[in-house]
Design a protein around this nucleic acid. Structure first.
Lengths: 221, 221
DNA sequence: ATGGAAATCACTGAAAACAGTGAGTTGAAA
DNA sequence: TTTCAACTCACTGTTTTCAGTGATTTCCAT
């Protein structure tokens, strides 16, 4: 490991930022590249070409522009930023929401500092990281599925698809256009398009190709 | 290569068999396990439990029971026999027919003996082998009329893709838009679109989803 | 009974993909 | 030396997809 991992931290509580910085500084492979106190600052920072970071540690609950909106900003602007969510809540729905927005890591503020370091390293490598209690919560919801550690299984996403969405997804892999699907399913094309949008959002992909790849990887076809 | 490849040869012209045996004997990694002079003999031979061969070299045109029928026999009895067709005809329809019957190699009698050796080695490894003039014939047919039924094996389609097309295809599976590809490859978007069209035509699919599925099935990704 | 998820439909505007045609350059093979 | 395939770019339409927003109905569960 030659190059340091560059990290940006965003939280509206400065004292917490300072704490994180202190923790991170104990690891010489990781370097703080900057911090933000509001969601707007994060967006401003990353919207400047020369401002980058390998990993962004992002608090969900910030005033005005919160973590969700920051994630949406990245998504809408096709910025492939690796993000670790720092949250006080272990709510599964929140987790799912940020997952669908493309975030790759999630740690609870109640966790020890070393988890942050592990999370940063995992995510910077392209892996996912979820703190243990999050994982156990997820595992519980999956009722006994075997999961590789640190990784949220696709099943989680698949399960979130409704019957109709699944049907549309299958037809997409068969190269149906929306019009053709509408005819085949006796629905309005508007409805089909609604499902498409829903699929794109839930599976967190850019376009139909992404949907098809997802379906293929998970043998929905 | 420790174990010899066992080969069975079937042709109604004994003189040709002898020729093939002579050629094969020049390669000490390949051994003749037997030969047949009629289709019936082939079927009889392989229907006996103890009679096997890694590769069967099979002439298409034999009296009464021809090569096609032998292939059908294998297919109907779920015998996964590796077969190289030896034919005098370079007719595409014949090639397609035997391909659909599961044969893995095809060489023309007009080819030099060394091609037989290469074919045997390729097919015994599980690869396909088609002599060069067959391949070019197949490719030519792709540029003109798309052969819908009979289906040319994917292998040929892949080979027909140029470097650039392959590159574009890979980016498509990564959910790049044409604009993004143009930027990534330092090309005009018009050029990218040209490749898209070329891919759609060559791989005979309807849209990008079809391209992605194709790429996935053939492990281009 | 009330709230929520699923399913359905609608409209709009923008972005992207698809289709057809044409054309110039280059490098390698025949 | 000519020919051809690969590569490149351009222009013009049409179709499809994507994004955002909002609305209704049904049915299930708290």
């Amino acid at each position: 490991m030659k190059e340091k991992i560059h990290v940006h931290v965003a939280d509206d509580h400065k004292i917490l930022i300072e704490g994180i910085i202190a923790v991170i500084n104990t690891d010489k492979n990781i370097k703080i590249k900057g911090y933000s106190l509001t969601g707007q600052e994060v967006i401003d920072w990353f919207s400047k070409k020369r401002n980058t970071a390998d990993v962004l540690i992002l608090d969900i609950s910030m005033p005005i522009i919160d973590g969700f909106q920051v994630l949406k900003y990245f998504k809408n602007n096709n910025i492939d930023q690796k993000v670790i969510i720092l949250s006080s809540y272990d709510d599964l729905r929140i987790i799912q929401e940020v997952l669908s927005l493309g975030c790759k890591g999630y740690i609870s503020k109640s966790e020890a500092g070393e988890h942050i370091l592990n999370a940063i390293k995992s995510v910077s490598k392209g892996d996912q990281y979820f703190s243990t209690d999050i994982q156990s919560a997820l595992l519980k919801s999956l009722s006994g599925e075997i999961v590789a550690k640190g990784k949220i299984p696709d099943k989680f996403l698949i399960d979130s698809l409704t019957e109709r969405e699944l049907h549309v997804l299958k037809l997409i892999t068969k190269q149906y256009s929306s019009i053709q699907m509408a005819e085949a399913m006796f629905l309005s094309i508007y409805t089909i398009e609604t499902y498409r949008k829903s699929l794109l959002k839930k599976l967190n992909v850019k376009n139909s190709v992404g949907l098809a790849m997802y379906a293929f990887k998970n043998k929905i076809v």
